[in-house]
Design a protein around this nucleic acid. Structure first.
Length: 407
RNA sequence: GGGGAGAUGCCCGAGUGGUUAAAGGGGGCAGACUGUAAAUCUGUUGCCGUAUGGCUACGUUGGUUCGAAUCCAACUCUCCCCA
């Protein structure tokens, strides 16, 4: 592959490369010296649950690997204690050694779905950040200015809205930038929300007399709600390890307008084909639901298999299009102590089944007509029912359970 | 160090003595409809075994009052201006 082709491949899907010439130069140098580029990615250890939004970046990393470069994943165990200043950060507890190891293992299992483990190195930033003395930290800090750090969007808006900014939070970008110095990274990939931190890495590297890394920015994947970015804490995400069924269903719930971005960022469907889909939708030749099913199938296939995707689709159609019951559902185990004269209060049953967090919530579900047993609607919250082994309890569209009686 | 403003339910945000489990919006959940767990519309959204009922809740702790999210005091935290 020529350098131009390599560059074109890497550029695809990115929002911005800073600077483009820098990346070209690094690719050239790497091919001349035979030395792979160090491509850096930082991950937060507190949420070891990789979702499609993270995958956008990881898939880009994979391309670098396929071109022979080295990927270095930094688990931000040290910086996690600070808490990323973006959003309503709450200071997080320092993770224990075991937790870190466990999370690292989880990460490994998950990113292997996307990355080539043979070309991936994992490091923890506590390895070097934890060893800095206060004096060292101050020396690093002296290379940056307050104004420079306050340029950052989060800080600027929090400042103008009168919201607090912890002094330690200001150090977060510095820590991330220093990671780049320690690793002598050539490229750092990240979402656009990482722009500031990654560019700061460039500044700091040059302060330390190093060649500056190239920043490569991917678009932020919008979450299932169609408004906010996909993130675990907002609950609007699809995890890469989720079951085919959940993945399919969640993807079917995205607003229609999001389909284009998902095709582009989360699948391998060629760009020309995506364009054809857009046109088909605009002209009415393609049905949005069918397109969305295709999208869901493509994504499930990446993380599971084509067969699993087909099954997930069949299940989805059975449950939501035909309103039938799913093939598999959790058991609601009832022991004799749960029954009074062979009956159980419907509200109690729902709470016991985990379908409602409280009696009040369960009562509401019943009153709203969301609860059926074997297809028969229960509308009276005071009802006592006589459970029969194998009966299907349904609350709303998503919650199912099969009664299992113990004797 | 001085002066000023503020802390309300998952989030934002009204509310300055009773009719406030607390307006409105967001989010969540449910129903209808449908083309899908899209969109739209409607309802609902503290907890308690079934309640013209009880309990908990408006930063914390006390106080005033028949009655407090609302008044008073102290404390904790945050923001702004000045130094």
């Amino acid at each position: 592959m020529t350098l131009e082709e390599q560059f074109a491949l890497l550029k695809r899907g990115t929002i911005e490369i800073v600077p483009e010439e820098g990346l070209k130069a690094k690719l050239k140098k790497s091919s001349e010296t035979g030395k792979p580029l160090k491509v850096k990615l930082g991950l937060d250890p507190t949420a070891p649950d990789i979702h499609l939004g993270n995958a956008v970046v990881l898939r880009k990393m994979r391309q670098f690997q396929d071109l022979g470069h080295e990927v270095i994943i930094i688990i931000g165990d040290f910086t996690a204690a600070i808490g990323d200043p973006s959003g309503r950060s709450v200071t997080r507890p320092q993770l224990s050694e075991e937790e870190i190891q466990r999370n690292a293992k989880t990460y490994y299992d998950q990113y292997c779905l996307i990355l080539d483990p043979a070309k991936t190195k994992v490091v923890f930033n506590s390895e070097w950040l934890g060893k800095l003395s206060f004096e060292d930290a101050i020396k690093i800090a002296s290379k940056l200015t307050v104004a420079r750090v306050l340029e950052r969007d989060d800080f600027a808006s929090r400042l103008s809205e009168g919201k607090p900014i912890g002094l330690h939070e200001i150090l977060y970008p510095m820590c991330q930038a220093y990671d780049s110095v320690v690793l002598e990274s050539d490229v750092e990939v990240g979402g656009l929300d990482q722009k500031f931190n990654i560019l700061l890495g460039r500044d700091l590297q040059s302060q330390f007399g190093q060649e500056e890394q190239v920043g490569l920015f991917m678009p932020i994947l919008v979450g299932l709600d169609g408004v906010q970015k996909m993130s675990k804490s907002l609950g609007n995400y699809v995890g890469v390890t989720e079951s085919p069924k959940d993945m399919f269903g969640k993807l079917m719930s995205i607003p229609d307008e999001l389909m284009h971005d998902y095709f582009e960022l989360c699948t391998d469907v060629p760009l020309e084909e995506i364009k054809a889909i857009d046109e088909g939708l605009a002209s009415g030749k393609l049905h949005p639901m069918e397109v969305k099913k295709r999208l869901a199938r493509e994504i499930v296939t990446i993380y599971h298999s084509a067969e699993a995707a087909a099954e997930a689709q069949a299940e989805f159609e059975r449950v939501f299009s035909q309103r039938e019951t799913p093939e598999e559902m959790p058991d609601i185990v009832l022991s004799p102590e749960d029954l009074v004269d062979g009956t159980i209060w419907i509200v109690r049953l729902l709470v016991k089944a985990g379908m409602a967090p409280s009696n009040s919530e369960a009562r509401r579900l019943v009153q709203q007509g969301a609860v059926t047993i074997d297809g028969k609607k229960i509308t009276e919250p005071s009802a006592n029912i006589s459970p029969v082994d194998g009966q299907v309890v349904r609350a709303g569209k998503l919650r199912f359970g099969r009664i299992k009686l113990l004797r």
